[in-house]
Design a protein around this nucleic acid. Structure first.
Lengths: 120, 120, 120, 120
DNA sequence: GTGGTCTAGACCACT
DNA sequence: GTGGTCTAGACCACC
């Protein structure tokens, strides 16, 4: 977690959990840590975790059994959409902007390919 | 301008001006409208325009002649970098995220190409 | 039972038992399953069943013979009230809200009749 | 506001604002009080109001201009749906339950009509 | 034990 | 000034 970032902590945590779902570290129906546990894990306030779990439930990624805990949804189809969904969300804005400033498809692919190679 | 967007107004305006520079609608040395004029044009608060001009000056894209106005920099080289700079900035984060969730180069290029085609 | 619902499990179970009384599937004086049995039946925690039986005893719908079990009350009059009681409880809040937002009697009856037709 | 109720404060406030929209006390595009003002008005914590405004924005009933305030949506169609929507939500559960325990349509309408007359 | 709600008070970016 | 985020700590109903 980057505590200085402009990106809210709760969104960073959500992104992190989503990655774990996409990469298969979290599987359908699996129980997530309790709010207090996850708070300790990420070194953040329990209330922030509550917000994370609420938001993910709104996105149909988790569900809650009252008094028991929070679980990854069992809807495998929903989960399988995650990867593409994240890509679209992230790439959508980028493509719009670059089209706007006059990138052709070839220029565009060239540029992002080059950036891909130098990243990480 | 999208007043409801999460993206701050001043950044939206800056992006808009940058696009005008890249596409040649604004040329080196050209005078920009006064803060009041620009505020009226975009229907935003003059304070927000002040922030726009400050930020652009920090990025060496404009300079101010006191009592006269704000001008596009005459450093043509600086301006020529803009296009690539915007692309890198926008694409950098995207690539990092998608690499993280396990996109190979081919998958990645495929996906963004597809998104390119359906955008706009 | 809907484990994800906002409605507490113990209330869901109570409602279920009441329905069985109203529809005659449970009769005055009949013995109810033990807490463990009912827990197994509904796939819920035995503590939750304890709460169910406590609550129903408070409403004079059941009584307990210590060491023997829990029984449907033999007060037939009490049971006969159940149907109307449930209706009043459920409808009371509804009517209050809809009156508040300006439904006339005709509009109100029209609306609920329409909803009746499309339900189930 | 009923501070003792099981119904969360933020939901009570939302219901209250919705009623004001339905009865025309709040009109499309109108500015709502600031979070701090509304908090003072209802004698609740500003954070609770933040939650109210967030929730209403999710339901497309309000929108936010950053740094300016929160406003009733200008989508009159969305607002016109509110009355019917509230009725359906409230009546749906009721009808389902009463059908379950064997109310015919006539009995049902009779009963709710009677309850309508005695309410308030 | 679990999540849900609320308060109090702080800090922040944006207009 | 506005809403957005976060912390700290409390209380609650439910299982």
């Amino acid at each position: 977690m980057d505590f200085r970032s402009n990106i809210p902590l709760y969104l960073q945590v959500i992104a992190d959990i989503k990655k774990k779902i996409i990469t298969g570290q979290l599987t359908p129906g699996e129980k997530l840590p309790s709010t207090r546990e996850l708070a300790a894990l990420y070194q953040i306030n329990p209330n922030t975790v509550v917000r994370v779990y609420n938001e993910m439930e709104l996105q149909n990624l988790t569900f809650t059994k009252r008094g028991i805990g929070t679980f990854i949804t069992e809807d495998a189809h929903r989960l399988s959409l995650l990867k593409e969904e994240m890509a679209k969300l992230l790439a959508g804005e980028l493509v719009k902007e670059l089209k706007d400033i006059g990138y052709t498809k070839e220029e565009f692919l060239d540029t992002v390919a080059r950036i891909y190679d130098v990243t990480l």
